[in-house]
Structures are given as structure tokens and as C-alpha cells.
Design a protein around this nucleic acid. Structure first.
Lengths: 157, 157
DNA sequence: GGTGAAAGGTCATTAAG
DNA sequence: CTTAATGACCTTTCACC
């Protein structure tokens, strides 16, 4: 478990310039191409790298409004609620959290007015007792992983 | 603004099999290679596709604990708090939300015990009045975008 | 459509744990 | 002794013009 400095540098390089190939990466890192390939294979098989799928911006798709909803679930209804929320495209992620039957989900919508429709669809389901929604205004720190990668690889030093 | 059915199918294809190239994608979609290339270029300059960086799993890096913290900020201290949180590697994202000076941030930690250290570092800062933390237990819906992509491309039909 | 380049695989050799 | 890195070579495939 854990990554060494070379893994860290490779991840940072790939994050900064995803278009470079294995060969170019090996040049930048000063190691053999086979080494980069072996590291990449290992990082993917042990799950550190989940994939290289496209990072899609919901706002550019026409969903510029983001919100977080805290849901209180009636005991025993968790499974049903999970299944229900999974069918709503505007639910981008869902977590169960500490607290009495609480869940937290990230929502997007086409507008503030549209958010009402999304929330109605989300909470219009038996088993959801209460919902509190916080609309996102700014995103000072967009989802990031590089600082953590650097920290993790330095810890391994 | 918006994407058509071909864009949608292309995004789904890239999400499912990121390793395929433009040529292979054009075969699967039944269109000319130039069409795929043009669509890709447009989606990237549009900002729909932000990039193809590696998706790194924090748990595999040694940070299996995730939490969401709601922070109440003293009026006028928002800028300082943002700058402070940006320096903490375990803060994966930060949003300002509706509510009196509220922020929501996603944290990761090496363990529940380590989470205490992270929270202390996060809230140990002038300007943060109050903090409420919810620890994530399960993640029934991991961050996803495909259902929204499908919906957006069908709306455009 | 043609062409230069890179990915992906295998191998023997060498170094390091 | 086991694991990893290296440089060489080869074939297929792709990106770009």
C-alpha cells in the first residue's frame, strides 16, 4: 500500500499533461519506457488509477447549478432510497454518513428553478423524512488530488 | 450550449473504454474518423471535456476515510479561510454555499484517528466559527456523469 | 490514403532488496 | 533469491498531413 516518489511524479505528470504518452513520460522522468509502463500497469491494477475517462463539466452540459442535499432516511428504508436516487441523473454522487439515517448527495440542475424540480424528484419518495439543501455559490477549490498524491509519495520516502 | 446524440455516444464510449483511439471510436460509432476528431476538438474547446487526467482513488493512496465538513465563517474572513483550506492536501474540494457564511468541504484521512488531526488543522484557523463533520460510511453512488450526459444528449434530440 | 511515430509486447542483462 | 529496471528489437496500430 502506498506509492513511491516515482509513482508520485508520474501521477503529477499525467495530471498536468494527460496527452503525453508513455514514451514522452519516460523521457521526462528520466527512466526507461518499460519502467513507466510497468508502473502504470501496477497503479491501475492496484486501484490507485481508476481510469482515464474524460472529465466532463456539468456546467458545459447545461447544468450550471450545483447543490448538496442532506437527507434523513426512515430506518430500514436505506436500500430503497439508494435505488431511487441512483435512477436520478442529476444525482451525481450519494454518500451515507454518520448520523441517524443520514445521506448526503450532490445534485446539479439547469437553473435555480430547475433545481426545485430535481429536489422534488429526489425527496418525493417514501422513506425520506427530511431534506436540507445548500446551493453552491462558488467553488474555490475544485475537486483535486495532486496535493494528496504529493503528500502520499513524500510520506513514502 | 448542449450536446447532440453523437456527442453523447462519444462521451459514453470514451468513459467506458478510455484507451480506444479516434480511429477505433469512429468504427464503433459508424462515422468517419474526421468527424470524431472534430467532435473531440469541439468538446474540449467547449469545456465539456475538461481533460483526460488519471482518476486517482484516495483510498488506494492510503486515505480510506472520507468526511464532509460544514464550516461557518465569520463575516469578511471568507478569502482568508479559502486560502487556508487550499493549503491542506486533505481538503479535496471546497464550496461556498447558501447560508450565513457557510462552506462545505470534502476531506480525506488515513484513519478515523487521523481525521481528528485533519479537522484540527482545517478548523484551527481564525475566521471559522463552527464546524460540523459527517463521516462517510458508504458510497452507494460514486461520482458519475454518464447518466447526465445521456439525458443532456437526449434532450437535444 | 500514405507515412512517420508511438504503443505494447518480449527478451536477456544488470542492479538492488 | 526475488523483484525491478534497463535497453534492444519487433509488430501492430494510430495520429497527422
Amino acid at each position: 500500500m502506498g506509492i513511491d516518489q516515482l509513482d508520485g511524479r508520474l501521477l503529477v505528470l499525467l495530471a498536468e499533461e494527460p496527452r503525453i504518452g508513455v514514451l514522452e513520460a519516460s523521457r521526462r522522468l528520466g527512466v526507461a519506457r518499460g519502467t513507466v509502463q510497468a508502473r502504470l500497469d501496477r497503479l491501475q491494477s492496484n486501484g490507485v488509477i481508476r481510469g482515464f475517462g474524460p472529465q466532463v463539466d456539468p456546467a458545459a452540459l447545461g447544468y450550471p447549478v450545483t447543490a448538496f442535499a442532506t437527507l434523513q432516511i426512515r430506518q430500514g428504508q436505506g436500500t430503497d432510497v439508494r435505488a431511487h436516487l441512483a435512477t436520478v441523473p442529476e444525482v451525481l454522487e450519494l454518500h451515507t454518513t454518520t448520523g441517524s439515517g443520514d445521506m448526503l448527495c450532490r445534485l446539479v440542475a439547469r437553473s435555480n428553478a430547475d433545481l426545485q424540480r430535481v429536489i422534488d424528484r429526489v425527496v418525493g419518495f417514501d422513506g425520506i423524512v427530511r431534506a436540507a439543501t445548500a446551493i453552491v455559490m462558488e467553488n474555490p477549490v475544485p475537486l483535486r488530488i495532486i496535493p494528496l498524491v504529493k503528500q502520499a509519495s513524500e510520506d513514502q520516502a
